[in-house]
Write a protein that binds this DNA or RNA. Structure first.
Lengths: 335, 335
DNA sequence: TTGAAAGCGCTAACAG
DNA sequence: CTGTTAGCGCTTTCAA
């Protein structure tokens, strides 16, 4: 692969001049010379070595993104937002999955340090005490987290407590009293917040909370199916189920079907996230919408702002919205 | 951020020695010295600068991945496979979406050249003549494509023609004669192959092919819905629809519902890919399974093999499988 | 077993 | 406007 040296030789200029035209340096370069260099570059199909550039400039135009799992449409959508924005800004994104494993998180952070990523975006809030993230504080790298975290970093957030409350209130308004909750993984901060919202809403409506009304899943349809089955086989079967994400809601609806129960006929169902398929599922899913794509673009934008602007907003909040669809269509009359 | 220089100074050894212990160089280092260096590195939380390393070694331990769209669960699953394998092998992956736009593909290839990615994995076969990919031939980078392409690169492939044939034959065996096809984007090589399989199967069964039986979508549920509606509103309504991916199949099923038609009661539906939700959708979707995750790991493995082994298999084939579920449950009696 | 020195490909003063 | 020079942080001969 050709180097700037090669270009300089062939264009009969110094390597410095080549550098200047490549970087559109403010330092003026004669028009004729510039054209000649440009032509040579094109002829040789020369591309500057980003490693060498980064070594000097201390900027790699790379951001690292750490998420639990790209197969989850929720994260895929966030990543899409990040990437679109990154593309616009000339950044490349390195993606890493953690499956919420602490050791992998740490390993990925090290990698991003070694590669001198300009910034790191961390999504999928987790509870692991202070350690892994706090290590980042010392770094010169820009950090943005999506969601709530133990450590105080610039953040893009959604009101998960409020979102869950919205969902439960909707169910209560429909007449439901026996409402169950399928929660997400315990290390997840969203799980904690959504459970909180669930409890708040019950309390506000004078409905007693019981532990057995809550099952835990790992955000997959499988786990939603499993949790749904257990819930629906309880003697005092719930009339409504709220799931911590749409994928688990789909699983639970499936479980209902297998038990001969229809949604929304025998059971109301509410999800969380509003992934693309929620409006195509049968029945279409009532859910609490999170603007995932915008979460991604906002986080990336923050990373960019941190470079230039010191007075950028450290926190950005997004409001969840309740989308009422067919899975909660029926009012409850009995009871 | 501390450098090897700093470590050397503090450990009272030469920078060379530090390098040797970091790289586990075959060149022997005294045990005591090594321990001391290691201790110092830990104390200072030193991480070698990958840019500097790459500049010299000409290896970045980075692969670029180019796909149409990470929000599509099909690609998300492939990417997951690539990443898991990359993690195991110590590679980082840079991900780029193209939305099947030629200019973006070219732009991303340039980026990977500048960043000196060791390899590039290209998924989502496209038809753009020779140009963008052929430019890659000259590169020192290792290239692997997933799917069929115009240019001959090491590849991981699936028999799309055979897969489509499987689907149609299943429908014919069920008694269907008026079978429609919702195809994918025209630049996509899979679309071409699946259409071919569709035609082949019809021919084999003596069913005439008509252009109007084929609609084109862009692989989203929305486009499947649209295409489904058009197909189902034809005077001689089809009794079965085959979609080029599961997402469009979901959309088409939704369209059927809106028209008061039930699947599989009034209409049989077959998809392609077997994304995770296909077995949770209502009805569960009969589909042609593609081992997406394995496609990803295989491609990444190939990239790795290309580094060490010159006799690696340039082509790897995966067989699609038909998964029969509820969306094709009913036999056709009328007609 | 250790270190000195050269240089990967580029940018950034500093002169001219 | 153009070029010379000194590194960026590391690996790799080559000596000692």
């Amino acid at each position: 692969m050709s180097t700037m040296q090669d270009v300089a030789l062939r264009a009969k200029v110094s390597i410095t001049t080549v550098s200047r035209v490549i970087n559109n340096s403010p330092h003026r370069v004669n028009r004729v010379t510039r054209e000649r260099v440009l032509k040579t570059i094109k002829e040789m199909d020369f591309r500057p070595n980003a490693l060498a550039q980064g070594l000097i400039t201390k900027r790699t135009m790379t951001v690292g993104v750490i998420i639990p799992d790209i197969s989850n449409p929720y994260y895929a959508e966030i990543v899409r937002g990040i990437q679109d924005r990154a593309d616009d800004e000339g950044y490349a994104v390195i993606l890493q999955n953690t499956d919420r494993k602490l050791e992998r998180i740490i390993q990925h952070i090290h990698l991003f340090r070694e590669k001198r990523a300009d910034g790191i975006i961390f999504s999928g809030g987790i509870i692991h005490g202070y350690e892994p993230l706090s290590a980042l504080r010392e770094l010169s790298q820009r950090i943005v987290v999506i969601g709530r975290h133990e450590v105080d970093f610039p953040a893009v957030r959604v009101d998960n407590i409020g979102g869950a409350t919205l969902a439960i209130q909707h169910l209560v308004d429909l007449g439901h009293q026996r409402i169950c909750f399928i929660n997400g993984p315990e290390m997840s901060t969203s799980s904690i917040d959504r459970l909180q919202g669930f409890k708040n809403a019950l309390a506000q409506n004078g409905i007693p909370f019981e532990d057995r009304m809550v099952k835990r899943g790992n955000l997959t349809p499988e786990s939603g199916y499993q949790a749904g089955r257990e819930l629906l086989e309880m003697p005092d079967r719930p009339t409504a189920v709220f799931a911590s994400n749409d994928l688990m809601a789909f699983g639970a609806i499936h479980a209902a079907g297998d038990l001969g129960l229809s949604v929304p006929g025998d059971l109301a169902m509410v999800g969380f996230d509003n992934i693309q398929l929620s409006s195509y599922f049968n029945p279409t899913l009532t859910t609490v919408e999170i603007p995932m794509y915008n979460l991604g673009t906002a986080a990336m934008k923050m990373i960019v702002n941190m470079a230039s602007d010191n007075s950028f907003d450290r926190y950005q909040w997004f409001k969840p919205r309740l989308l009422i669809r067919h899975s909660t269509q029926n009012k409850v009359s009995r009871e």
